[in-house]
Amino acid sequence: MSGTNIVNVLSVLLILTSMLVVETRKLRMAAYMYRFQSLVLVTIFLSIAVFMEAKPLYIWSITALITKTFLVPYLIFKVIKRVKEQEEGVAIDKKLTIILAVGILALSFAVVEPFHMQAVLKLRVALAVSIAHFMLGLLCILASKNALKQILGYCLMENGSHLTLAIMAYNAPETVEIGILTDAVFAVLIMTIIARRLFKDFGTLDTDKFTLLKG
């Protein structure tokens, strides 16, 4: 199996895991799924690094391992411990989400069709997946009323954009990647703090109940 094939297969695995994040009812389970998915992402980074001989990507994968598989899930678990297990509050029916996800995937594959750049050409499947991944993150936010689940959706979007970055610019300097990753961690940190404060005041994490804050 050639290098590109491995990357492409792994990225399909990525889509499956992100679907799991979207579909899982229980928050704790979803967070585990996210952790697993991040692990897959790290493997993708590693394999790109090996096959494309892109040295910066080694450092990327290490930082991604630390932040995405340990730090971010840790923050989310902390909040879950505080708020206990919440009812999820499904906004969109399961079947419908799957149909929408399929539509998003189809759209993404259609979008990458005209790309004929040399570097990207080999990883076309991965590129399509990364775009779809970003949209799936949005779908995750759309499908759930729970604030924590929406934070996870945001993390999915992050993962998607990172994958795009890794594919398009795998030789970008390490500092860029480190900057983006720490940025993501801080975003999640702030969002979890807000979620906790909201829970303290409202006693729920259902975002539909937060419209009181509208200006």
């Binding site: 906004a91 949005l138 936010i141 759309l142 009323k145 929406q150 959706g153 975002t207 539909d208 937060f210 419209t211 804050l213 509208k214 200006g215």
Partner: peptide, 8 residues
């Protein structure tokens, strides 16, 4: 609407 999901 003030609802995050709508914005998404």
């Amino acid at each position: 609407t003030g609802n995050v999901r709508m914005y998404c």
